[in-house]
Amino acid sequence: MPQIEVSGIYKTFKVARRSSGLRQAVKSLFYREYDTVEALKDVSFTVDTGEIVGYIGPNGAGKSTTIKIISGILVPDRGKCTILGRVPWKERISHVRNIGVVFGQRTQLWWDVPVIDSYELLRDIYKIPRREYMNNLDLLVDTLDLKGIINTPVRQLSLGQRMRCELGASLLHSPGILFLDEPTIGLDAESKIAVRQFIKTINREKNVTVILTTHDMSDIEALANRILLIGNGRIVYDGNLNDLKGRFSTHKTIIINFREYNSPIDDKTLGIPGVSIVSCSQEKLTLRVDGNGILLTDIISRLSNIVDIVDISVESQPIDELIVKLYREYVI
């Protein structure tokens, strides 16, 4: 049975229209127009225990609304949702005891006191038994390398250190599900890798289900075996990241270095349909290969008849480009 089951969720908001300029401002003193925004339209998906799911989509697509609904903050207009057998918005208190949430842009720690004091308070808020608390704390201090910073006030921590402490704070009560909202935003490369590493570890060792929203596609590549793509309030893609690559990566780029060769190579000399030359010099050739049906060996054997190949590198399309294409495809 899936751990998270969401089916047919709808949510609309009313937003006041605001206009600029002095005259408009005076006008709005007397009446105000409202727009209805359909944030979610028929959103359905399921997540199994121990999965890591990347939840992506452009700004305003409905990501955070979804997260708010499944974490029990918001009540949807209609639709069903069960998480660990509970309806989040109906049994808020017992539901939130089993989830951990990290917002990359906001802190859940108390700003002016050492991190450990915040942890102690969280222990009381979640009523974590002493033993469980000590075990979790030890584990988290180890894996997140918190030893040196746990007695420092939060306001003195760097962003990367703070994020590690945030992750720790959201796992103290051993939740089964962890929601991460842009956990690597603003972090330097080293901290990013540390955070990703930790998410992997905790997922593997404690079998914690992770739902991750991010704009950083390398997070997704490093962590998620599955992605959910939302656009305009609908789930438009739900599946494996590799499948997505297969479906959407339309071309590869091949760069070939060779010993100096003086006569120019053009599409005709190459003579393979679907392969075109992007640039060509006396030592280097850049090819664009469209579609998936073309064998690399064909290209190499054809070329080795003409030049002495020194080096070959194949670059597939960057994932960011893929996502942009995906957004365009679904007109989001």
Binding site: A25, S28, L29
Partner: peptide
């Protein structure tokens, strides 16, 4: 001054 006024007018309920 003008900016302040526009800012203030936006918040009709506050006024």
């Amino acid at each position: 001054f003008k900016l302040r006024l526009i800012y203030g007018l936006q918040y009709r309920a506050a006024a």
